[in-house]
Structure formats: C-alpha cells, structure tokens
Amino acid sequence: MTFFLQQVVNALQWGSFYALIALGYSMVYSVLMLFNFAHGDIFMVGAYMGFFVATGLVTLGAAGVLALPSWLILALTILMAMFLTSLVGMLVERVGYRPLRGAPRASAALTGLMIGIILQTGNLALLGARRQTFPGLIDVTSYKVAGVIVSNKALIIITLSILLTLALHQFVRRTKWGMAMRAMAYDFAVVPLMGVSINTIALLTFGLGSALAAVAGIFFGMAYPVLEPYMGLLVGWKAFVAAILGGRGSVLGAGLAGFLLGFIEIFVAAVFPSTLRDVIAYSIILVILTFRPYGFFGEPYSAQLRL
C-alpha cells in the first residue's frame, strides 16, 4: 500500500510537467489549428530563463547587494521567467507563424520543427554543450506521511500545476479574451469578420502557453537540476501526445491527460520491468485513441467546442 501511494506521488509530480506543457500545445492547436512543435523547446527556453533569473538573484543575494528570502526568489524567478518566455513565444508566433497564416498546414508544422531546432542549436551555440545546474531555490525537506515520502518541492510542483490548469480553464471560460479564443476555435474564418483580430488572439495564445511552459521548465529544473539544450525534445513530444489525448478545445482535458500520462508511465515502470515502460505506456495510449479518436473531451470539428 505504501509502495502504491508512493508511486501515486511520483506520478503526480511527473504528470505535472506533461500537464503544464500540454496546455500550451492544446491552446495553439485549438485556436489556430496548428501543431506548434517548437513548444517543447519553448519549455527548454523557460527552464533556462528561470536558471538565469534564479542564478542572478542568488548571486546578488550572496554578494550582499539584494538579500531576498528564498520564497521570494522563487516567486520572482517564476514571474520573470514567465514574462520573458512569453515574449519568446510571441516572437515565435510573429516571426514563424504569422507569415504562414494562409499557407498549407504542413508548412506551418514544418516551421515549428525548424524553430525548435533553431532554439536548441542556438542555445548550444550561445552557452556551449556544458550542462547547467539549476540552483536549489528552496531548502528541501521531506515529510513522511503514513510511510509515504513527500518533499516540499513535490508539493509545490503538484499544487501549483493543478492550480494553474484550473486558472487557465477559468480564464478561457469567463473572460472576454477567453471568449474570443473559444470563438476562434469554433470558427477560424468567421470570427475575424466580427472584428476580433486573429493576430492579437494568436499572440495571446502563444504568450499564455509559453508562460505556462516556463513554469514547467522551472519546476523541471528544481526537480531534475541538470539543464541541457535538448531537454525539451522528449518531454515535448510526450506532452503533445497528452494534448491530443485531452481532446481539441479542452484545457481541462489536456491537463488531465498530462497527469494520466504521468500515471501510466510511472505505474508501468512500477509493475513491469522498467525497460518496457514506453512500449507498454504508449501502446495503452494507442488503444485509448482507437476508441476515442477525438480524445477525452474533444468532439468532431463541426460540433460545439468547449474550450
């Protein structure tokens, strides 16, 4: 039982990253009908932004210039990295996707792949192949509850990921901007005729998604403190799977699917030899898609969408 509960905690933490990244994939896919394959690398950019801000603040603190409590450093790191990364995301939209608005879908998908490669190799060229260590922002304490070990770090990661997913859901449902996004997802062609600027909504979508990817990047850096330029590749692909699995137009679906992916991966590794993890995990997902081709909460494109 303890073993099982421990794996639940492990799965929640691992699923958090998929969920946060999947939100960005899902929004772009829903609103603009394109796969932003650079999103995994935006996540990498977010981790590095967090790394720079955090290292800067920690250095300032150590030099005695600006001594801040560690929780404030963490909060500032998250906020500043979100802001900086959303700028990068919007730049990607402006430079990479807007010129191709009328182009075939395949070209836009290609743009994503190419921007991803540019971000990876650009990082490599700028910072070199050296690994960076993400600073330990908070003192890690582990709590033992009924034999299950949970660190304060894991608690922060899991709670904030769930809260951000819910917050995004509310944003999309309750605000005017959210309504514009939902309308755009409903009918890409007519909405601009109603005076909603497609370019503004596209920027907003990319900005929001990138900000969430930055949070994922910082959390990832806190949990797995070795940063490298290709860190977004595999996680990005898997989060993309989660976004599709969640269903087009569903924020909650993408979040849930992210956590589900975490659970499947962790529990397959816990029960079967860990070698077979991805084979079994992704076979399960293939089966789910066979029965639910539109994902959990997605519906055929003609029907009402509930972003």
Partner: peptide, 20 residues
Amino acid sequence: FESFTTKDRDFSAQLTKIIA
C-alpha cells in the same frame, strides 16, 4: 535490477522499487 532509457530524467518509479 532496474533500468531506464537514455534522456530519462525521472527515476522515481525505479527508485521506489529499489527502496522497497
């Protein structure tokens, strides 16, 4: 005797098994 694949960053499932 637990394994993972290159580029994996999370080993919590395997380590929990090892501890158990």
